[in-house]
């Protein structure tokens, strides 16, 4: 199976986010980055499918040069090669630009399966994979918790709301958006890290794909980014842990009457 995995680099979970002066984005220079969580699971699933059925795993990431960090990590874990689609912050609005770039870059590769994460932790569109499937004319299924591939067909387990699941069948080639928790992630080995250094990272810019800037424009306009205003009056309890704990217990007994 020839599999592509879309991996996105996102600010690390514990990052403190600060706004830029013009409130149109966060200050990126302060941040450290990591692979988007469900994308790590998508990669793991692809590596397992390759181990079972043979083939190749190619990772693809859209973003500035810093995304090579997550690309290297994926190569160290066992991906065979990578495509880095160079793009600046313009792709942060709207899922379309990243999907379009990836579609043009891989159209002729003939992947049997494309795996993306179900959602990015930073923008949270939950769209890029499905849009990519549409641009490539592929069938898709989202929020996947198990993948079985056999005889050119897929049987996948879709997560539904409230603890329900559903099996869905589809032909290959296809696109799946993978949910966190589908498998157990592996760590990169020392050997893997060494081998990664000699693996191919194809760096591609939009014009090489024959794409003009207008074709990559989103259809949305960002007005402002801001810290949400709290609407609920939370009573913050301070003091040392001991003092805070004592005050809380008292409040739960007296005011909330739940103890």
């Amino acid at each position: 199976m020839k599999i592509m995995v879309c991996i996105k680099q996102v600010p690390a979970k514990d990052s403190t986010l600060r706004l830029t002066e013009d409130s149109t984005w966060i200050r990126e220079q302060d941040l450290s980055y990591e692979i988007n969580e469900p994308d790590a699971y998508a990669l793991e699933e692809a590596l397992r499918l390759k181990e079972k059925h043979g083939g190749e795993v190619v990772v693809c990431s859209v973003g500035p040069d810093r995304v090579q960090q997550v690309i290297r990590e994926a190569l160290a874990k066992g991906a065979d090669r990578a495509i880095h689609l160079v793009a600046d912050g313009g792709s942060r609005l709207d899922s379309y630009p990243a999907a379009r770039l990836m579609a043009e870059a891989v159209r002729r590769e003939g992947f049997d399966l494309i795996c993306t994460g179900l959602q990015s932790d930073d923008l949270g569109f939950a769209q890029t994979g499905v849009v990519l499937a549409e641009l490539l004319g592929l069938p898709h299924a989202t929020i996947i918790m198990e993948v079985q591939a056999e005889d050119g067909r897929l049987k996948v387990k879709r997560e539904l709301e409230g603890g329900w699941f559903q099996w869905v069948q589809m032909p290959l080639p296809a696109l799946l958006t993978i949910q966190s928790g589908i498998n157990k992630l592996r760590y990169a080995t020392l050997k893997g890290i060494k081998q990664a250094k000699s693996k191919e990272i194809r760096r591609v810019i939009a014009t090489e794909l024959g794409l003009k800037a207008e074709e990559l424009a989103g259809r949305q306009k960002l007005h402002r980014v801001y810290v949400p205003v709290k609407t609920k009056q939370t009573e913050f309890i301070d003091g040392s842990p001991k003092e805070a704990a004592a005050k809380l217990v008292e409040k739960l007994q007296r005011d909330a009457r739940v103890l």
Partner: peptide
């Protein structure tokens, strides 16, 4: 964002707060 729905909030390390809380609850 959890504080957006919380009635009571303690900003702190849970490994300090929870043992104290257990003690206070047992006392109460």
């Amino acid at each position: 964002p959890i504080f957006e729905v919380a009635d009571y909030g303690i900003v702190g390390n849970l490994f300090d707060v929870v043992p104290a809380l257990i003690e206070e609850i047992n006392k109460a």
